[in-house]
Amino acid sequence: MKYVKRGAAAVLFFVGLVGLLWASSWIVTPKNNMKEFGMEEVSANGILGEKDNTIDVLVLGDSESYSAITPMQLWKETGYTAYVCGTSAQTLDYTNRLLRRAFEDQTPKLVILETNAIFRKVALSKAMLSTLGNVLPVFQYHDRWKDLNENDWKGNVKFTWTNDLKGYRYNANIVPSKIVDYMVPTKDIANIPELNRQYVESIKNYCDEHGAKLIFLSTPSTINWNYKRHNAVAQLADDLQCDYVDLNLMTEEVPINWHTDTRDKGDHLNHAGAVKVTRYLGIYLQNRKELTDHRDDPHYAKWDDSLKKYEAKVKAK
C-alpha cells in the first residue's frame, strides 16, 4: 500500500508539473512573429505570417543561405515562391525547429538545405534543451517574463508580419576574396558529427512524411567550402537519396567573380553573387518541372507588391 501511495503521489506530481509547464509555455510563447512580441530571428520567422500554403520552396541554413538566395529575384524570373529561413550560425537543432514551424501552415514541395550548417557542431546539451523547447516552449521563451503584457495572458496567437525580402538579407558591399582556387580535388572526406547526421536524417524523414523533397545546396564560399566537405555531403546525399547541388564546382553555370561578388573576402556572397546563384537556382527548379508559375495568380498578388519594394531597395543602393 505504501508503494502504491508513493507511486500515485509521484504520478500526480509529474502530471501537475507538466500542466504547470504547459501553462507557462502558453503564457510566454510569442503571440505574434515580431520582435516586440518576443519572437526570435524575425527574418526567418517571417514565414509564419505568409498566407497559408503559398510557399513552394523552403530554404534552410545559416548566413550562407540568406546571403546567396534572393526569393524575390526567383519570383520575378520564375514565378516560384521561396522563403529563406536562414539565421546566423544556425545549428541543425534550430533548422529542425524552423522546418517544423514552417510546415504548420505551409506545404512546400521542395526544401533546400544549405550545407554549411551540416558541419556546425551541435552540443548535446543544446540539442536536448532544444528538443525540450519544442515540446514545452517555456524552455525556449522563459526569458520573456521580462516583457510579458496583457495579451500574453489572453493567449491569442496571430502571426501577422511578413518579410518583403522573404528571408533574404540584402548586402551590396564588396570586399574581394584573395582565395580563388579553394576547390582542390581530394578523396578526403570531412567529418560530419554523429548528432548532426542524425538531425539531417530527421529533416529528411520529416520532408518525406510531408511530401516534400529535400535538396542539399552548397552555395559558393571560399572560406567555408572545400572539396572534403563536398565529398562528405555527396556521400550523405547518396546515403539519404537526396539531390545535391554544389555550386562551388559549377563555375560556368554560376560564374562567381570573387573580386566583385563577395561582401567579406569570400565568406558570404553579396547581392551581385546572390543574383547569380538565384538565377541558376531558377533554371534548376524550372528544369525539375515540379513547381507552378504563380505570377498570374491573383492569390499571389502580394508577392508583386513585395517585388516592387525589393526592387526599390536594390535600386536605392
Binding site: 503521489a9 501537475g16 508539473l17 504547470l20 507557462s24 526570435e40 534543451l129 524552455f139 522563459h142 526569458d143
Partner: peptide, 25 residues
C-alpha cells in the same frame, strides 16, 4: 500536507525554469 509540499517543489522548479539564466543570450 502533500499539497503544500507539492506547491513548494513546483515553485522551486518554476523558479528555475522561468528565471534561470540559460539558453540564447
Amino acid at each position: 500536507p502533500l499539497a503544500i509540499r507539492f506547491a513548494v517543489y513546483y515553485a522551486l522548479i518554476l523558479l528555475i525554469v522561468i528565471f534561470g539564466a540559460y539558453g540564447a543570450g
